[in-house]
Simulated scan of single mutants.
Amino acid sequence: MSNRSLCLVAITSLMIGSYIYIAYRPTDLLMFHFFDSLGLTIRIQEVRSFGSTYRGFIPNWVIFCAPNGLWMLSYMALSALVWNRQMSLAAFGWGIVLLAGSILSEFLQLFKLLPGTFDVHDLVAYTVGAYLGSCLGFLGGKYGKAQAKYFVTFIARILRFNWLWKWETQSRGKL
């Protein structure tokens, strides 16, 4: 995978994760107050109105967990570009710091030390995003097409397991 392609994957992941968050997450989140202070409320409402058309077709894990994984993928891919796609102790350290911080924030939510709701699926999303971003960023330059094929296959497998997540959350009464 070329640097240009990797940059495109990173930016696309960032944009898709952001769109999902803006279009489908509850408006009482702090970011919506920030958007309001910037005078973006009307634009945000337009995005949410467009998104509401498709809400019934989007599983909850996409709305509540996928943005985290997409953002992590984006960060790891962009980090690989910053480090010239060379795995080093520094590159590994920056990746681990963000992944560990994300995981720590989930556990702080569990113990009510940070606002939000703990969700084990967020932990999975962070980990999968970090893994995929690292693979594409640091290994993609060496293996190119084989790595891209693995990535697409992996995503397809995740989507096939959507029924399992749906069953689990229904059994907990979240849907």
Score class of each variant (00 low, 15 high):
residue 5 S to T: 11
residue 6 L to D: 06
residue 9 V to L: 11
residue 10 A to I: 08
residue 10 A to R: 08
residue 12 T to R: 11
residue 12 T to C: 11
residue 13 S to N: 07
residue 14 L to D: 02
residue 16 I to V: 13
residue 16 I to L: 06
residue 18 S to C: 12
residue 19 Y to F: 12
residue 19 Y to A: 11
residue 19 Y to R: 00
residue 21 Y to I: 05
residue 21 Y to T: 13
residue 21 Y to S: 12
residue 21 Y to N: 13
residue 27 T to L: 07
residue 27 T to H: 12
residue 30 L to V: 15
residue 31 M to S: 13
residue 31 M to L: 15
residue 31 M to P: 10
residue 31 M to K: 13
residue 31 M to T: 14
residue 33 H to C: 05
residue 33 H to I: 11
residue 33 H to L: 15
residue 34 F to W: 09
residue 35 F to N: 01
residue 36 D to C: 03
residue 39 G to Q: 00
residue 41 T to I: 07
residue 45 Q to L: 07
residue 45 Q to G: 09
residue 45 Q to I: 04
residue 46 E to C: 10
residue 48 R to W: 06
residue 48 R to G: 06
residue 49 S to N: 02
residue 49 S to L: 09
residue 50 F to Y: 14
residue 51 G to K: 07
residue 51 G to C: 05
residue 52 S to D: 12
residue 53 T to P: 01
residue 55 R to L: 15
residue 56 G to I: 06
residue 57 F to R: 02
residue 58 I to H: 04
residue 61 W to I: 12
residue 62 V to L: 15
residue 62 V to M: 15
residue 63 I to A: 00
residue 63 I to D: 02
residue 64 F to L: 08
residue 64 F to I: 04
residue 65 C to M: 02
residue 67 P to Q: 03
residue 67 P to L: 08
residue 68 N to D: 13
residue 68 N to G: 05
residue 69 G to Q: 01
residue 69 G to N: 03
residue 71 W to C: 08
residue 71 W to N: 10
residue 72 M to I: 09
residue 73 L to C: 05
residue 74 S to G: 12
residue 75 Y to K: 05
residue 76 M to A: 09
residue 77 A to R: 07
residue 77 A to Y: 06
residue 79 S to Y: 04
residue 82 V to T: 07
residue 82 V to H: 01
residue 85 R to F: 00
residue 87 M to V: 14
residue 88 S to G: 10
residue 90 A to G: 12
residue 91 A to Q: 01
residue 91 A to I: 00
residue 91 A to K: 06
residue 92 F to Y: 14
residue 98 L to R: 10
residue 99 L to E: 03
residue 100 A to H: 06
residue 100 A to E: 05
residue 100 A to N: 03
residue 101 G to D: 00
residue 101 G to N: 03
residue 102 S to W: 04
residue 104 L to C: 12
residue 104 L to V: 11
residue 106 E to I: 12
residue 106 E to P: 08
residue 106 E to T: 04
residue 107 F to S: 05
residue 110 L to D: 11
residue 112 K to T: 10
residue 112 K to R: 11
residue 114 L to P: 03
residue 116 G to W: 05
residue 118 F to R: 00
residue 119 D to H: 03
residue 121 H to A: 02
residue 121 H to V: 01
residue 123 L to R: 07
residue 124 V to G: 03
residue 126 Y to C: 01
residue 126 Y to K: 00
residue 130 A to W: 10
residue 133 G to H: 05
residue 133 G to M: 05
residue 133 G to V: 01
residue 135 C to G: 15
residue 136 L to Q: 10
residue 138 F to Y: 12
residue 141 G to Q: 07
residue 141 G to T: 04
residue 144 G to K: 15
residue 145 K to C: 03
residue 146 A to T: 15
residue 149 K to S: 09
residue 154 F to I: 13
residue 155 I to E: 01
residue 155 I to Y: 10
residue 158 I to N: 08
residue 159 L to W: 01
residue 161 F to R: 09
residue 161 F to K: 10
residue 162 N to E: 08
residue 162 N to F: 08
residue 163 W to D: 04
residue 164 L to H: 04
residue 165 W to Y: 15
residue 166 K to S: 15
residue 167 W to A: 15
residue 173 G to M: 09
residue 173 G to A: 03
residue 175 L to A: 13
residue 175 L to F: 13
